[in-house]
Amino acid sequence: MKIFDAHCDVLSKLLEDPRLDFIQEKDRLDVTLERMLESKIGFQNFAVYLPASFAGEFRHVLQCIDLFYERILSNRQIHLIQTQDDLRHAHNQGQIGALLSLEGVDALQGNITYLRILYYLGVRSIGITWNYANWAADGVLEQRQGGFTAQGMNLITECNRLGMILDVSHLSEKAFWELLSRSDKPFIASHSNSSRICPKLRNLNDDQITSIIRTGGVIGLTFVPPFVHAEEPVTMDRLLSHIDHICSLGGSRSIGFGSDFDGIKEKIAGLEHAGKYHQLIELLQKNYSEEDVEHFIYKNWYHFYMDNLPSHHRIGERE
């Protein structure tokens, strides 16, 4: 069974230490090529997230993208996903599809030209904030809990026009609702859980979840232990409560996974790295139908991207 993971931070680790071996660095990387092949990961979204020491400069975003091309895409088993055709090709040929996203628009510095440059380089989804405020919007941990700025509203419009998918993980609730009213495209939460099950600000409340379901988005349940359950140690079965609850809201076809591997220090017992995905699949198969498991693990994300990526690639042409 193939796997579609909507969020990992391996590029941040490669930025901090370019000597790391993406092929088989098992001590310091959660996601490696060996582990992806072992778990039959069919698609992996690689996030560009700049650690604080890199001060949100656009040149470091470009460094991450260069690392993506040089260290990830240089492997023959991996195929860059920019269009529906790319997605279909990787699926049919049995290659690992690699998607590129930006987590937090801080480094764009309000410059929409930078956004378009990232689109031309292959970035296909944008997480608007990390936890705090930037020039576009407030993050979920920003004390004032504001929404979008005027520049941020322009960002939404341009992302819609380009065909850049918007991601609400880490976004303030007020900004979430403003995005819902402003965007004419469905959006995602690449790595967020249910706040009803685990009351954390980073998780989504029922109204948010229902809105994502209604508008055709997908929620990637994350493996960050404090967002799964309040008490440690956190085991895999705690994820089932999040799945059950979202399904109770009508979201069985809006559930995926976004591990956040390489962005977390604490790990769920049994899901310590990308090579352990098979254990999650076995747990899911004991509790849900084979059809539902296939949708949770792979098909829901695959169908979303097939519906929302550009149909084909032409330099300089927008959707």
Rank of each mutant, 00 (worst) to 15 (best):
V123D: 03
L87P: 10
T113R: 13
G122P: 02
Q93A: 15
L121T: 04
G97L: 08
A90L: 09
G94F: 08
L87T: 12
I126W: 03
R116K: 10
L99R: 04
A90M: 08
H89D: 12
R124Q: 11
G104D: 11
V105R: 02
Q95D: 10
G122C: 02
Q109R: 14
Y119G: 03
L108E: 03
L121G: 04
L87S: 10
T113Y: 11
G122Y: 00
I96R: 06
S101E: 08
E103I: 04
Y120W: 10
R88E: 14
S125V: 02
E103C: 05
G122F: 00
Q95H: 14
A98F: 12
V105T: 12
H91S: 14
Q95K: 15
Q95P: 03
R88P: 05
R116F: 03
L100D: 08
L108W: 03
A90I: 07
G94E: 07
L99G: 12
I96M: 06
G94H: 09
L100W: 08
D86C: 10
D86E: 10
N111T: 05
R116Y: 10
N111S: 07
V105K: 01
L99I: 09
A98G: 12
I126E: 01
Q109I: 00
I96L: 07
H89P: 00
A90G: 07
H91D: 15
L118N: 02
G97Q: 09
